[in-house]
């Protein structure tokens, strides 16, 4: 599109001196700036720190300050830290505890979140907006305070604990009766609070997925004589696999590296990976080990999960395209 000549003339005469910069800015400069600014920012403040951590994990621990040596007298790539990581049962146990807690929490989130998400797609539109708001609202309020709320409920003298204890005492035989249920400082507490804190992350992607499903497929299956539960198993569930994967990922990965929840309600003698990283860095001042544990967490859990989800989503897309 060409401009009318008088506008072009005005452009040219109004800013003759600054024309170079303005022309560049108007033509492609603004685009370059839009791309480059966040790009450079993320490179400097996200990728570079990360590369430093990877380098740190193969550095040598020294009694100097800062407490590591890299190159020079030390081997350029010192694998001693990784050897220690994979032979010391402390680290292996921490990994297993993290994976177990995160896996239980993810499965429970799915079992509670799936029916809720499905229920949300079946209520009337005005109700749906209110209920969605109620799902999102806890997500906006402080994470720390939501964990704290459960500390109040789980303590041995709380009304919730007393309620559970009396329910248990009624059901269990008399000789098994207890005065209170020990919930605080257990892995059970970690799983429970993780489910509570991450449930919106499961519900929202599932809801987004289920909402888009074509209900005529369900009706067709019903017309062909399927019972409702059968329709769910054969139609809804397979179509919602991408939502399940997205939700599972959003729960499992942060839950496995969780620091706050096990720190407040977990069993102190069974640390999870996040605590180990923090302790190695701050108390033990073993920076290479802290870095190696972080890199291992990333390579063993995060990267495989992301790759899996990526390829599963691709495969699902492909299956859906086939007639």
């Amino acid at each position: 599109m060409t401009e009318s000549p008088d506008i072009a003339a005005r452009h040219a005469s109004a800013r003759p001196s600054k024309g170079g910069f303005l022309r560049w800015f108007n033509r492609r400069g603004w685009a370059d700036i839009t791309i480059a600014t966040p790009y450079v920012w993320l490179l400097v403040f996200f990728l570079v720190p990360f590369i430093i951590v990877i380098a740190m994990s193969v550095a040598t621990r020294t009694p100097t300050s800062p407490p590591f040596g890299f190159g020079g007298d030390h081997p350029l790539i010192n694998t001693a830290t990784y050897e220690r990581l994979f032979s010391d049962s402390l680290y292996i146990r921490a990994f297993l505890t993290s994976i177990r807690n995160a896996a239980f929490a993810t499965v429970l989130c799915l079992l509670i979140g799936y029916p809720m998400a499905l229920g949300l797609t079946r209520v009337s539109k005005s109700w749906r907006n209110i209920l969605l708001m109620l799902v999102i609202l806890p997500f906006w309020t402080s994470f720390l305070l939501r964990v704290y709320a459960w500390m109040g409920l789980m303590g041995n003298n709380s009304w919730f604990n007393k309620l559970l204890t009396s329910a248990y005492n009624i059901m269990a035989p008399e000789e098994w009766a207890v005065r209170s249920i020990q919930m605080m400082n257990t892995n059970f507490a970690v799983v429970l609070v993780t489910v509570y804190s991450y449930l919106p992350f499961m519900i929202l992607p599932l809801y987004a997925n289920l909402e888009k499903l074509d209900l005529t497929l369900n009706e067709a299956a019903e017309d062909l004589g399927s019972r409702p539960f059968r329709v769910f198993l054969d139609v809804t569930l397979p179509l919602s696999v991408p939502g399940i994967i997205a939700g599972g990922l959003l729960v499992f990965i942060p839950a496995s590296g969780e620091l706050i929840i096990p720190g407040l309600v977990g069993n102190p003698s069974q640390p999870m990976i996040g605590r180990v990283i923090q302790d190695e860095f701050a108390s033990a001042r073993d920076w290479p080990m802290a870095s190696a544990v972080a890199v291992a967490l990333l390579l063993l859990l995060v990267v495989p999960m992301m790759l899996y989800s990526h390829f599963e989503a691709k495969a699902h897309e492909k299956r859906a395209m086939e007639p």
Partner: peptide, 25 residues
């Protein structure tokens, strides 16, 4: 770039935290 934009979303916070700390030191 799209990787850099997604990674912090999913990264366990403790990893982001420790790498920022080491970076600043």
């Amino acid at each position: 770039f799209s990787g850099l934009v997604t990674a912090p979303l999913i990264m366990p916070e403790v990893i982001t935290g420790i790498s920022s700390l080491i970076f600043f030191i």
